[in-house]
């Protein structure tokens, strides 16, 4: 059983991204760009990419360690 750091990074960014994007959708935002929604979305994409990379690495049998 190997341990791939991309799993925890991906999951944490997904979770934080969802929280921040939700704050952007439902919370009170200052005038100007909706930074919560934009950056929250960005964090979701990054988190998902990390998870996908980790899954691909596990399938191909190579691991990060």
């Amino acid at each position: 059983m190997t341990f791939d750091i991309r799993w925890p990074i991906g999951l944490l960014f997904l979770a934080i991204g969802v929280l921040v994007a939700a704050a952007g959708l439902f919370g009170v935002q200052p005038a100007g760009p909706n930074i919560d929604l934009d950056w929250g979305g960005g964090m979701i994409v990054f988190g998902a990419a990390m998870v996908v990379l980790a899954v691909l690495a596990r399938r191909s049998g190579s691991s990060s360690e």
Partner: peptide, 13 residues
């Protein structure tokens, strides 16, 4: 000053 709640948590973290 510039982070609303949400990003504020990310920044402090």
């Amino acid at each position: 000053r510039y982070f609303p709640t949400g990003m504020l948590g990310v920044g402090l973290t």
